[in-house]
Amino acid sequence: MTDLDPVIHAAARLRITATLASLEPGDRITFPRLQELLDMTAGNLSTHLRKLEEAEYVAVEKSHQGRTPVTFVTLTRRGRRAFEDYTDALRAVLGGEE
């Protein structure tokens, strides 16, 4: 358990990362839709996204659709790799099940 990535190894951020990792690489998702898929409050999601962004696992990009501001969230390559390393580490700890 010692070398599990502490950024991902917390329930909320693990669920966020798992959700973003289930999108195709190169896809980004709007903040409200991500919030819907996670069933989290906007405040809580923002807080955790900030931590993931600080680790450069997640990129948050603000743009406009017409006049409406839209926030897109995407897993960076670094984030996707970290998630894969993390799940590999979990499976290794569990004795190579699956």
């Binding site: 195709e24 690489p25 190169g26 896809d27 980004r28 998702i29 995407t74």
Partner: peptide, 9 residues
């Protein structure tokens, strides 16, 4: 695919 943009869209 609502809310998702990028290659899969």
């Amino acid at each position: 695919g609502r809310g998702v943009r990028g290659d899969s869209a």
